[in-house]
């Protein structure tokens, strides 16, 4: 899993323009981050990487980079 691909999926899930996110971005600063956005990102990560995330796991991450790390760990 590349970080680039991870960010692409986050952008797709949140309906954000391509290339508009970075690993350092905090979820609470992303305007498009809401419950439906979270469900969309969870669905896409599950489909692409076979990683099943629950809401608790998501809440434990402050930044996109932290979530990428979590997905990488689970996918390994």
């Amino acid at each position: 899993m590349s970080t680039k691909r991870f960010l692409e999926l986050v952008e797709e899930g949140l309906g954000m323009p391509e290339g508009s996110t970075n690993e350092g971005d905090r979820f609470i600063d992303l305007e498009a981050w809401d419950s439906v956005g979270a469900l969309s990102v969870i669905a896409l990560l599950d489909e692409e990487f076979g990683v099943s995330l629950d809401a608790g796991a998501l809440q434990s991450c402050n930044t996109l980079g932290q979530l990428a790390g979590l997905v990488l760990k689970k996918a390994a």
């Binding site: 899930g13 309906g15 439906v36 956005g37 469900l39 969309s40 669905a43 896409l44």
Partner: peptide
């Protein structure tokens, strides 16, 4: 059953 917001 698949939880899929319309966007995805």
């Amino acid at each position: 059953l698949s939880t899929r917001p319309l966007r995805v």
